[in-house]
Write a protein that binds this DNA or RNA. Structure first.
Lengths: 234, 234
DNA sequence: GCCGGGCGTCAGGATCGCGTCAAGACCACC
DNA sequence: GGTGGTCTTGACGCGATCCTGACGCCCGGC
């Protein structure tokens, strides 16, 4: 069951959305304004956020900016404004979809399904936990065996990029572009240096990585649960 | 630079889209009908597909069905029909977004950016499964009997090329060009060597391939479901 | 039965990519 | 102006990967 955070200041619409989403099998959390929304998002770990742009306290894009750094799930924006300029602004601010009011509930649900299908198989959680260390994407904090570890900005950028894609091979070009920018796509040196530093800080045995794996010639992969080594061949 | 496959039967709209997308920095490939679209999608490796539903030969949902599950990128559907029932159908068939004609070009580009930002599908969304092994195209991971197997970059490039075209004969020239580049179109040695390595790593009995078949003089074919033994010779 | 083309297999050597280390450049703060 | 931390850059050794050529087998044509 997926959890939806619905942010809207109109109590009637909020109620209608809650009922429809519950009926569709979602776990629903609501917030009437932007600050509550950000608090709820961090506390309730929703898989997806439905966000009305017309909030009393914060601008919709501010809420998006607050969610963006750590929230990996999709954000579906609701708005009364149909002007394409507004749509472009919201989508470029980090929204995944934009639906204008009044909307058809069946369509909204379908767009939610589509967003979730692509979104996160792993719930959009702010914390990634392994047997040895914990990465808190919202608080930007890493603890190894419960002890907080300091990471430099570059180390953090690299680690979060990997941790946001558990199990997926992240290409070296992809990593370099995300951390250093498009101009550094060939500096694979950087990856070697910083991966080594991360392993030294996080891995129980840096010489034999359990979590931060190298795929020679392709990229790196973060594995939450190391594969069983018993029947490994070759 | 991202590559976009645009599928539409209206030459004027196709031209307008090609110009706008080129100007926005995309590499554009086009197709006027469904069968061409499927062939182009397999050959050109687009990052995203813009798909008109009103095609002369195939229904839009058929094209979607042909694209999934091996195509990992987003599919943005264009349609003249604004009925919410159509939207729901397309979104549930695997589309990531639905834009009704006439559309605003700036909005379409923003929705494209949003779709591409989310990037490739989550692991597990684009899996090709056989009785013996699983190929996860999004995570770039292969497991044999549940055990992860390491593939070299060349092995992976070759395998994904075959797996993206299940059941279809992929020509030698096609494979060589996709993996090694146009200058190596005659080096059929490479294919023999690397196919052997793939079979050794994936096939239950490498000497008698069940999934990676050779078509002498033509090319190779990946079969998900091997034909029944009955009709087999001997 | 002979012959040739295409394929599978194998092994060795050249090359590439990775991990590691260390030193210099840069920056912010004191 | 000094100091500590962070980022860049280069060099080195080692293992993995890729390329290459040779050999034998199967099959279809002659």
């Amino acid at each position: 069951m997926s959890r939806v955070l619905v942010v809207d200041d109109d109590p009637h619409l909020l109620r209608a959305l809650r009922i429809s989403l519950r009926a569709a099998g979602y776990d629903v959390v609501t917030a009437p304004d932007g600050t509550t929304a950000l608090r709820q998002a961090a506390a309730a770990h929703p898989d997806v956020v439905v966000l009305d742009l017309g909030l009393p306290d914060l601008d919709g894009t501010e809420v998006l900016a607050g969610l963006r750094p750590w929230f990996t799930g999709p954000v579906l924006v609701l708005s009364a404004r149909a002007d394409s300029h507004d749509k472009v602004a919201a989508l470029d601010a980090g929204a995944d979809d934009y639906v204008t009011k009044p909307f058809d509930m069946a369509e909204l649900l379908a767009r939610l399904r589509a967003a979730l299908r692509r979104g996160t198989a792993e719930p959009g959680q702010a914390q990634v936990v392994t047997d040895h260390f914990t990465v808190d994407l919202a608080a930007k904090q890493v603890t190894v065996d419960g002890v907080p570890v300091r990471l430099t900005p570059t180390e953090w950028a690299l680690l979060s990029e990997l941790v946001r894609n558990p199990g997926r091979l992240v290409g070296q070009r992809e990593l370099l572009q995300a951390v250093w920018g498009p101009a550094y796509e060939r500096e694979t040196n950087y990856l070697r240096v910083y991966l080594a530093q991360l392993r030294r800080k996080l891995e129980p045995d840096p010489a034999h990585p359990r979590y931060l794996h190298t795929e020679p010639g392709m990229g790196y992969r973060f594995l939450k649960d190391p594969p069983a080594r018993a029947s490994q061949r070759q």
